[in-house]
Amino acid sequence: MTVRIVVLAKQVPDPETPPSQFKIDESTNSVIPPNGVPLVVNGFDLNAVEAALLLRDGGADVEITVLSVGNEFVMDAMKKPLAMGADRLVLVDDEGLDKIDSSATVKVLAAAIEKDGPFDLILGGRQASDWDQAHVTLGLAEVLGLPLVSLVQKLELNGDSVSLQRVIPDGYQAITAPVPAVLTITNELGEPRYPNLRGIMQASRKKPEIFSLADLGLSAGDLAPKLELKKLYVPESNKQVELIEGEDEADSGKKLALRLREEKLI
């Protein structure tokens, strides 16, 4: 029987944007997209796509759906999971989703999963690189009433249960959970695969399936924020580095040690 997996994915500004190029429009409390820096799928979400693909590589009969909630999707970014090998892309795309908070995101995801489900596994990345809250997938497990395991680096399907490795500071825990379950995936799982040419061709032919809020029986009124963003700003840094320059690089290394000693730091 086909195992249905849904992977939650979000488009974010490229987190590798150099700090010097990271700018905020304080009048709208939003990030100014740096010139030429495109939106990308949140990196940990690609780890979650990879986790699903590894189950398929291992011989399981899986159907992989990628689900995203938002507005103004950039298809070049959002189709990457399809190019990696996911089967379907489902978007909840609605103007009403422009400025929602994460409690509302969870509601919309839960409604979309109820409509498009049932799913055996719900996978999310360990956190999103824009708001870094690391809680949407956890919250979804609560709202759906499903078992939850976070920070998964390895998973194996055994019929009605999954065997998992969950990362802890100095190793991992072995965990079993019944299916259906909600899991967050961490980068220790391994790098997401690069799409190959065939994958890219297939993805270009696939059309996303799109839901509006109304399709899910929701309206903007259901999505009132619990957190109100008052101010978003780049913190000022007035740190001044003292560069140690010797006659050559080796001498700089020596002078650095002497300088730290002088400051009683070592």
């Binding site: 700090p19 840094s237 740190k239 580095v241 003292e242 560069l243 140690i244 320059e245 050559d248 690089e249 080796a250 001498d251 700089s252 290394g253 020596k254 650095l256 040690a257 002497l258 300088r259 730290l260 000693r261 070592i266």
Partner: peptide, 27 residues
Amino acid sequence: IFKEARFGVVGDWEKVLPSFLATVREL
């Protein structure tokens, strides 16, 4: 990193680090 650091050496670690380590050991 130089915007966050208090002390810095601009250089190749392969040249900087061995003499840093040697001096630390001497100290």
